[in-house]
Amino acid sequence: MVHLRLHQIETYIGQYHILQGISFEAKKGEVTVLLGRNGAGKTTTLRTIMGLNPASKGIVEFNGEEIQGYPTYTIAQKGIGYVPEDQGIFAQLTVEENMKVAIKKDNAATQEKLDYILNLFPDLKKFWKRQGGLLSGGQKQMLSMARSFINDNQLLLIDEPSKGLAPIMVEKVMESIMQMKEQTTIVLVEQNFMMASTIGDYFYIIDDGKTVHNGTMDVLKEDEEMRRKYLGIS
């Protein structure tokens, strides 16, 4: 079942034509990875799905419903969680308050989910009363993911979760995403190919604002030429 489908999406930021034809699908229960060089349009693609940089052309379908043109809060209410590249932590709110802002319904089911999340990210439990701005980079990443995961979202958009993290933290984040994958569909933007290839099921390569290749992650692992050409790695 396809959860998310983008068809020929075009997006401008000011006068710049950033996305010039992005098309991809994310299937239920899979991790779909968007790869590409810096400036290719990966982050803008996620922001366009969320309505933060609205598309000027094309279709964004979530569970069969066209959502392009909806305000960001409506898109989020439909069941899409977003973990931005800068993590979007409310620096002067505590970890607890950051979570409370996100919680839509404060009921027994949410409490159960919160317990699950705090087991998944034990550091958050430890620093529950600490201000978000005082957390380490890895802890901020975990808080941002936890916040997007609390409301039973059907789809999570995660933008470069390994960026700026120490290798040990990257491993922790990777393990967390693997566990989250069991409960939700994930679209992941990631530069760290080791991480992307470990947790990804399917990939799309974005180049100059267009999707240029796609396939299963195993195909990309075997295709050294493609990795060198579009990702700059061998």
Binding site: M50, L52, P71, T72, Y73, A76, Q77, Y82, P84, G88, F90, A91, Q92, L93, E97, N98, K100, V101, A102, K104, R147, N151
Partner: peptide, 18 residues
């Protein structure tokens, strides 16, 4: 809480469905 969060990052508040 939403007002305080919005002062810090209103884009993120919207992305949380508010």
């Amino acid at each position: 809480l939403v007002v305080r969060a919005g002062v810090m990052n209103k884009e993120m508040v919207q992305a949380l469905g508010i």
